[in-house]
């Protein structure tokens, strides 16, 4: 167990290093922010001076080494646009706005998938199956900004302000963006639960359980679902990256003050510190959650043992 964790940790460190390295060089390929720091009348010399003040005129490798040195301290420098510590800004937007949204849609997309998937599997190829699958596919087949705008029009305008059209702060604000973000992973999870169940329901131990006279509901929820949960967990772990970055568009539509919008607006402004800090946080969360997923396997499926 300890060796596993150690290896996993090293692996995680490597991935995070890789991501920050890629982002470091990638953003520098897009030019530099000195154009934003001078006025419209600046001469070439003044632009060069602004670049010098930012330290962007030094050799790339010097900047890179310095950057790597400051990452472990959590120091990503000062935002060029906002002139505040970049990491502080990123964390302000991550917590609570992004965390809330990601968590809520994670819960929605997994918790709702179970009953829908179960209904699908137990009524295979009958109306409820078609309904649940078509319904979830339908949600998945719309671009999220489109779905979001439709929900706003429906709930905020036509239903007389049943749910707020913008902003964050309460569960009522959370409903529409979370549903929009959950739409695509939900469909996928319904499929996974369904196919997982169909497969398990044919297997010996389930037949045995049935033969022992256990109720169908108990069979499904105690035995079969455990098995079906594994692919859901795997795919969810991987789609968390999507949850975090797919949120970018949903944050714009719903005026949600999250991390995605912060980072996306930082790219055209060439606000390197904010982009780097934001992508770093994305990567850390992604890696951490995937370690968590590995650990979850052992809980859900006793057959999986950590080496």
């Amino acid at each position: 167990m300890r060796r596993f964790l150690l290896r996993r940790l090293l692996h995680a460190l490597f991935v995070v290093w890789g991501v920050v390295t890629v982002v470091f060089f990638l953003v520098r390929l897009t030019g530099d922010p000195s154009a934003f720091l001078v006025d419209q009348t600046a001469t070439q010399a003044e632009i060069a001076h602004a670049r010098h003040l930012l330290g962007l005129d030094r050799p790339m490798w010097v900047q890179y080494v310095e950057f790597l040195g400051s990452v472990p301290r959590g120091d990503f420098g000062t935002s060029i646009r906002d002139r505040r510590p970049a990491m502080r800004m990123v964390l302000e937007h991550f917590w609570p706005a992004t965390a809330e949204l990601a968590l809520a849609s994670l819960v929605l997309s997994t918790v709702l998938a179970v009953p829908l998937g179960v209904v699908s599997a137990t009524h295979r190829d009958r109306a409820p199956d078609h309904l649940s699958r078509l319904g979830s596919l339908f949600l998945q087949s719309m671009p999220s900004f489109w779905l979001g705008l439709m929900l706003i029009l429906l709930f905020a305008v036509h239903l007389g302000g049943l749910l707020p059209a913008y902003g964050a702060g309460s569960w009522r604000h959370l409903v529409l963006p979370a549903v929009t973000l959950a739409a695509a992973p939900l469909a996928q999870n319904v499929r996974l639960v369904r196919s997982g169940l169909l497969e398990v329901l044919q297997q010996d131990y389930v037949r045995t359980a049935r033969a022992k006279g256990l109720g169908e509901g108990l069979v499904i929820y105690r035995h079969a679902l455990r098995n079906a949960a594994i692919p859901v967990i795997t795919v969810t772990g991987l789609s968390l990256g999507f949850m975090l970055s797919g949120a970018i568009i949903i944050e714009t539509v719903f005026s949600w003050p999250g991390l995605g919008r912060l980072v996306v607006q930082a790219v055209p402004a060439r606000d390197f510190p904010v982009i780097q800090a934001g992508v770093f946080v994305f990567a850390v969360i992604f890696v951490a959650l995937n370690v968590l997923v590995d650990l979850l396997y052992t809980v859900v499926d006793p057959r999986v043992r950590l080496p």
Binding site: L149, I152, L153, A156, Y166, T252, V253, S255, R261
Partner: peptide, 11 residues
């Protein structure tokens, strides 16, 4: 802050 015009009008 409400970036989307449609959302501003809805609000």
């Amino acid at each position: 802050t409400i970036p989307e015009a449609a959302a501003r009008i809805a609000a």
